[in-house]
Design a binder for these strands. Structure first.
Lengths: 119, 119
DNA sequence: TCTATATGATACCCTTTAGTATCACGTCAA
DNA sequence: TTGACGTGATACTAAAGGGTATCATATAGA
């Protein structure tokens, strides 16, 4: 299984890039427009946009002297699919928890795994 | 919005860690057991496990002199939710495409957005 | 108790990443 | 044509990532 979705995962690993994605969800934006929303140089934002493009998450279209960056939400589908593989597990766990609760909870060593320490 | 899911996204950004997650989907494993599956030192694997733990994706339970690492698939839910926000966009696009196809395609300037340049 | 084993913890490398500063280039407008 | 503007590209620095080697510690077992 060649990790063809590695660039996408890596692109998503930075909070600035995730913010950019959501901004582009509103409308396509030029590099300058995106840069205006962040407290960093245009060059830094450009690097993030390149990584997003490498991950296939955005498309860049030349329009005169501008570059319009547009969201490509379809690229998130493979990522969702990868994560979706784990649904089978927390489905099972939720079932087990539910069953344990309904059975009454005096044999609950087996359910301590999904303990409630989700900060 | 404090980026509380940043550790999770960062943990998912490495292919080795994603492989570990799927391995732990099979069964909980000790550090040594996980290390056996990779061509790297135990210390390197340990670092990955720490990052996975920081992201809340696994739990580590001491059992004698061993540390059993277990998958915590619930931790992927916030990540799925974040990604799910983008469903609205490719849903709209798919709908537009579908509508265009069903309507017959001679007035299709409006649908060129989801053009066939999906590599 | 003694020893092998599973792990924790550092210190250290090399590469990548995130950021800046700077300059060159194409394009829009007067 | 001139100049302002949006961008590309490069060089540079600081920090984080991914990896190794090494030593210390706790525990299982004879």
């Amino acid at each position: 299984m060649p990790d063809h979705l590695q660039p996408a995962f890596r692109a998503l690993a930075d909070p600035t890039r995730r913010d950019i994605l959501r901004m582009l969800g509103d409308r396509p934006m030029t590099i300058a427009e995106v840069s205006d929303q962040f407290d960093m140089t245009r060059a830094a934002v450009k690097k993030h946009l390149v990584m997003l493009s490498d991950g296939g998450l955005i498309s860049v279209e030349a329009r005169g002297r501008e570059r319009v960056n547009s969201l490509k939400p379809e690229a998130l589908k493979p990522v969702m699919d990868w994560l979706g593989w784990f649904d089978q597990f927390w489905d099972v766990r939720l079932d087990a928890l539910k069953a344990a609760i309904e059975e009454g909870n005096d044999n609950e060593q087996a359910t301590e795994q999904q303990g409630p320490h989700d900060d």
